[in-house]
């Protein structure tokens, strides 16, 4: 309760309290610049984190809802085994649809490795069947057993081995983005603490005069806290605005660019950077407050 009251006191009371601290151009600019730079980096880390989050979700959703059946059989048996597999799939619960991929689609899949105009009919390329799942999906173990009985050349791939490392990588990238944001906030707190300590050390006479006339520590601290919080807020607001403009001018998401062109904010995510200046102000508030009370207790 006392702590709450002291926080409130920093914002209330004499609203001109910070006039007792002499203007200090250098620390003022340093604090604003630091807050601005940190806010700029935070917005980009946030964009990266959100983009990887979206990517992880998309990969997870897309790969989780599909499976592929690969049929490798002698030329004469390929059509029969394909038909047998489709028949098994038609009678399996949890399968929405299944279709044999066309030669053109398979050619397109192989194009990145073999180049265009691949003579698919001269190569022993297995037949691929794309399976779309519904509900909870099929019983994969049971399906594998049925396929091995009906079509010995068919191999079911439920994408688990692809999906897990991709989703893990994207999730860790998102975590790294969040850790970066926390490190940036910590760095900003450290820099503002140093600037506040420097300002407090340079204003020993001011503190002496204020104490002589009966100023409580909370009044003196408030003068410094107000100033540094305001500087951090203004600096961070400018940094955030510049970063949001930068993100807005990133290329639009495109299939060809994959992840890199998807960096940015989507929908309501555009509102998230707006809390960065607020967080910067809160960080500055606590950093200055702790530095001020520590310095004042040393001076007593």
């Amino acid at each position: 309760m006392d702590r709450l009251r002291s926080i409130f006191e920093v914002f209330s009371g004499d609203t001109n309290a910070d006039r007792v601290v002499p203007p200090s151009g250098f620390t003022s600019r340093l604090t604003s610049f630091t807050a601005g730079a940190m806010a700029f980096l935070t917005v980009f880390a946030l964009a990266l984190s959100l983009a990887t989050g979206r990517l992880a979700d998309r990969w997870d959703a897309e790969l989780a809802r599909t499976s592929t059946i690969r049929i490798a059989a002698p030329e004469g048996q390929l059509a029969a085994q394909s038909e047998a597999v489709l028949e098994v799939l038609r009678t399996t619960p949890g399968i929405a649809s299944a279709r044999v991929m066309s030669d053109a689609e398979q050619r397109k899949l192989l194009e990145p490795w073999f180049g265009p105009d691949l003579p698919l009919d001269t190569l022993p390329v297995p037949r691929l069947i794309e399976v779309l799942e519904e509900g909870k999906g099929p019983d994969m173990a049971g399906l594998k057993l049925r396929l091995s009985a009906e079509a010995p050349g068919a191999v079911l791939d439920d994408h688990t081995r692809w999906r897990k490392p991709l989703v893990d990588a994207a999730t860790r990238l998102r975590l790294l983005g969040l850790v970066s944001i926390m490190l940036i906030a910590g760095s900003m707190a450290a820099m503002i603490t140093l600037a506040a300590q420097s300002a407090l050390a340079a204003n020993g006479q001011v503190i002496g005069v204020l104490r002589l006339i009966g100023a409580r520590d909370v009044y003196i601290a408030r003068a410094f806290v107000r100033r540094f919080t305001l500087r951090a807020l203004i600096g961070a607001a400018i940094g955030t605005a510049l970063a949001m403009i930068g993100v807005a001018f990133m290329p639009a998401p495109a299939e060809e660019g994959a992840f890199l062109t998807g960096l940015g904010f989507v929908g309501w995510h555009w509102f998230l950077p707006l809390i960065v200046p607020v967080i910067a102000a809160v960080v500055a508030f606590w950093a200055t407050r702790l530095a001020a009370f520590r310095a004042l207790s040393r001076l007593s």
Partner: peptide
């Protein structure tokens, strides 16, 4: 406590030999 000290100093007017002021605000302030 330090708050007690502040409170009692509000009841005491002190004139020092080497009087110190806040140099960046006017005498009136």
């Amino acid at each position: 406590t330090r708050d007690d000290v502040a409170r009692v100093r509000r009841r005491i007017g002190v004139v020092h030999q080497n009087c110190q002021f806040l140099d960046h605000i006017s005498v009136r302030d």
